[in-house]
Design a protein around this nucleic acid. Structure first.
Lengths: 196, 196
DNA sequence: TATTTTATAGACCGATCGGTTTAGAAGATC
DNA sequence: GATCTTCTAAACCGATCGGTCTATAAAATA
């Protein structure tokens, strides 16, 4: 028999796609083995805690990726550059609306109760990181916070509607609209010194 | 033994709440019987087609409700009044963000493939009905369409984030923001005759 | 090359899955 | 009140569930 060998990071990524497509409850062990080609033996070798551990590690992996690629730049880097990068990262990560947000999907059913703190942390950090960047770009804290919330809400909503309507274009339009709105808000708030 | 008697409309509503909480795959027959107090006998009497029929009838029921309470008024009634009513209906129906959108949740995993046309119709009609009302209120068709899309996207995103953050307040804030934006757009487009 | 560790394949387990059937209670019709 | 239809309760079904276990192949270490 032909034996296929996997490394754990690959296993995490492969299983993640199955959860993304089928949801936590919808992803049965047999569907995971069928779609990833990982046998049950391999899966339980990498994830002795079973489905729950798989989901937990996947979420941690996604979170870590967003932290380095998006959150930390927003928190620490040049705000305008980091925001520009955020639009690209978002569009690329979600494959222009064709890929659902696993963490957002987990939030909707009772799967949320299993992973509530991971889910909460992810969205909270996204909103706060973006709000921080907007504040450093010159916006008032309250306005920055509201706009950051609007952006993350818009991204999640657009992902839902892109799937619901079977039309990715809505994701691109939403991203463009949000980008413009943020750009306009930053423009308006340029410090007086530069206007005079 | 005490026998509990149900009528079908009640059965639909009760089962709907279970799907809402657990998702389509997460809602097992045993969890449905446990939460609704409907026995398997009753459930298969009302829904001989099993889970799939339950979900289909629930979606049809939700759709019909939205048609009479929201879509038709937007399509046919006074646009400003219908839009005002829409904000109230939305807030009430989704219990200020504590209740998820079942149709939106179904859109995210492969449950979508079972009910794709019902899901698509629901969101398409919402967007088009609202765009129609905005057009009749004086907006250009393209702007109306964009704003309508923004509103439905915002509502869906806010529902996701309300659950994810465990904070209903975001739903109210989003609704208020969208309401204000729509109001401003309508104000701006009052016909010249009324300005002069 | 011998030994040990790591990872894979798949049979196997009890529990639960969605769904069916049967017996009979409650409601409706006469 | 007899009859018929509607509806409920729960035992029951094969299939699938998530998870365990064993044998062994491959890789790493010696």
């Amino acid at each position: 028999m032909t034996r296929i060998v996997f490394e754990k990071p690959d296993a995490v990524a492969l299983v993640a796609e199955v959860f993304r497509e089928l949801g936590y409850e919808g992803a049965s062990m047999s569907s995971i083995t069928a779609r990833t080609k990982l046998s049950k033996g391999s899966l339980y070798h990498f994830f002795p805690g079973g489905k729950e551990q798989m989901a937990a590690e996947i979420m941690a992996h996604i979170d870590a990726w967003f932290v380095t690629e998006m959150f930390r730049p927003l928190e620490e880097g040049d705000p305008r550059a980091a925001i520009a990068r955020m639009w690209e990262t978002t569009d690329t990560y979600f494959r222009s609306g064709r890929r659902v947000c696993l963490i957002g999907a987990f939030a909707l059913d009772e799967t949320r109760d299993r992973f509530s703190s991971a889910i909460q942390n992810y969205f909270q950090r996204w909103i706060e990181a973006l709000a921080g960047a907007l504040t450093r770009a010159g916006l008032a804290a309250a306005e920055a916070r509201m706009l950051a919330e609007e952006v993350v809400v818009g991204i999640q909503g657009a992902l839902t509607l892109a799937r619901a309507l079977g039309d990715d274009a809505i994701f691109g339009r939403t991203l463009a609209r949000l980008k413009e709105r943020l750009g306009a808000a930053i423009e308006e708030s340029v410090p007086p010194a530069r206007i005079i």
